[in-house]
């Protein structure tokens, strides 16, 4: 840090491209949307910034508040599920041999190279009534049925496909699938740096595998867990594509409502107010994180 202060020119040369980029293409549009949220529609395309709070009041109506609450829940459950699925994966990768590591990491990242829309459509093909999961189950079912028939126990009743698609569970499965790499990678990064001698000490001193995991590994991986939770929770909170394609008749999330305000409903001020309410929730989450982190230090 000292050397940066002695070399202000170098500091500015390094910071300028990224800083300008953020200012022009992140802060400026965001500020515009923030202004829209205090505006009124004027004609078809005009928005007059009048300083009104009406959009916020409308966004806080029980109808939308219920959807905010529901979106928070879905995002929270999906994030928890992602954490539970990711932890063993990250652990396995960090304990894998040097040759296997890059391959396993590649397998985690690989789906990420495909477009989000296509991955979501792939989930439809997996989950639907005539989808791959039901095909697989039907095959197993028919095999068992044939076996019980030959031993004289009689055949099983006909296979009833599971209803996996077009409900809230499908939305959660979709979020877990899409955002898994965001959880695995930060977890892996902290687990990789974890000092193995702590684990040996814990096991040598009589703690079992489970106790070592919960009392030693998890606390040491806390930074990674928190980063992963934030990286999954925030995009899950605003998702609309996944709920649109995989959700059922009651899977509307606040992201869907916001999307409609900017497109079909052509009500940018209301959409802007809703997105900023969502952003305030995000800020609250980030504030919680820094509180947690500071308590440790």
């Amino acid at each position: 840090m000292e050397s940066w202060r002695q070399q202000p020119l170098v500091f500015w040369i390094f910071i300028l491209p990224g800083g300008l980029w953020l200012l022009l293409f992140f802060m400026a549009p965001l500020a515009l949307v923030w202004l829209f949220s205090f505006g009124e529609r004027a004609g078809v395309i005009g928005i007059e910034i009048t300083g009104t709070l009406a959009n916020y009041w409308e966004a806080l109506e029980p109808l939308y508040l219920g959807l905010f609450w529901k979106s928070l829940w879905i995002a929270a459950i999906a994030t928890l599920a992602t954490l539970i699925v990711s932890f063993p994966v990250a652990l396995a990768v960090s304990f894998a041999s040097r040759q296997m590591k890059p391959i396993l990491l590649l397998l985690v990242i690989l789906p990420f190279w495909t477009n989000l829309l296509i991955r979501t459509y792939a989930m439809i093909a997996v989950l639907r009534t005539n989808g791959y999961i039901n095909y697989g189950l039907e095959g197993v079912w028919n095999g068992v049925s044939a076996a019980t028939a030959t031993v004289g126990l009689g055949a099983l009743p006909a296979f009833q496909p599971l209803t996996l698609l077009y409900n809230n569970t499908a939305v959660i499965i979709g979020i877990v699938y899409i955002y898994l790499p965001f959880m695995v990678l930060p977890l892996y990064a902290t687990l990789e740096r974890l000092d193995r001698s702590f684990l040996e000490a814990s096991l040598d001193l009589g703690a079992g595998q489970w106790r070592t995991f919960f009392n030693v590994v998890v606390p040491l991986a806390k930074a990674g867990i928190i980063s992963g939770i934030i990286l999954v929770f925030i995009p899950a909170l605003g998702t609309f594509l996944i709920s649109d394609l995989l959700g059922g008749p009651d899977s509307q999330l606040i992201g869907n409502v916001i999307e409609r305000q900017f497109k079909a409903a052509n009500n940018w001020p209301l959409g802007a107010a809703m997105s900023f309410l969502l952003m305030y929730v995000t800020f609250a989450v980030l504030a919680l994180r820094s509180m947690f982190m500071n308590r440790d230090v």
Binding site: R41, V44, L63, Y64, G66, L67, K70, P249, D250, Q252, N256, V257, R260, Q261, A264, A265, N266, N267
Partner: peptide
């Protein structure tokens, strides 16, 4: 009709949230 479209949009949100 901007006014009616807003009403319908809100009705849709209500149906989907119910």
């Amino acid at each position: 009709d901007a006014e009616r479209d807003t009403l319908m949009e809100k009705a849709l949100t209500r149906v989907l949230a119910a």
